[in-house]
Amino acid sequence: MRWGVIVFPGSCDDQDVYDCLKHVLGQKVEFVWHRDNLQADFDCLVLPGGFSYGDYLRAGAVARFSPIMRGVVEYASRGGLVVGICNGFQILCEAGLLPGVLTRNASLQFVCRHVYLRLEETDTPFTCAGKKGQVLKLPVKHGEGCYYADPTTLERLRQNRQILFRYVDAKGRTSAAANPNGSLDDIAGVCNEGRNVFGMMPHPEDATEKILGSDDGLKIFSSIAAAGKEREKGARVG
């Protein structure tokens, strides 16, 4: 399986994603600079965290017009797997590949701590190795992670089961205290209707070995790796 990690000016978790994929999971991975053309034969693209273009105007708003994004949109429309983490999630929302938007944390504080997430759906390439209701411990580190969508969009997300992760406490219960940023409906991660584009605010790439405090992030990357293998058995995207 061939992974591409897209690097924008201001990305800062690109190395973490690369390291996790290459050295922890033994995957084939390469960086793709945002000005380069996107080669068609990647099996999964990751838009990493960071502060692309200094978060000017709105987080992700400027990166969304980076040259590479045309290729990313086209890749996604062909069914290619795309994952956005933190700033990557913000970029995918701004690009219209995912519904909703990430706004300033309700507390106005930058949050940097471990949170618990409940895995809500397993019939996606991003969560297929997990169990429904399973609780994962992952770090968040963001100032603009408050998910918002209008009521119609939220209803559609629920009906289509596009909410893949919610913020919960260690026992898997939602509460205001467990929600680090004020996200609507405790949403931590959503996918598109086609279930091939996924974004989340917490950082699975920073929870890949016990020594980091958790290795629950592997659940997400190993799901994608498993789904990628299944896909390879069928026809390659492209």
Binding site: A61, V62, G100, D150
Partner: peptide, 8 residues
């Protein structure tokens, strides 16, 4: 396209 996000 850029200056405002019509979602919010």
């Amino acid at each position: 396209r850029l200056l405002a996000n019509p979602v919010i």
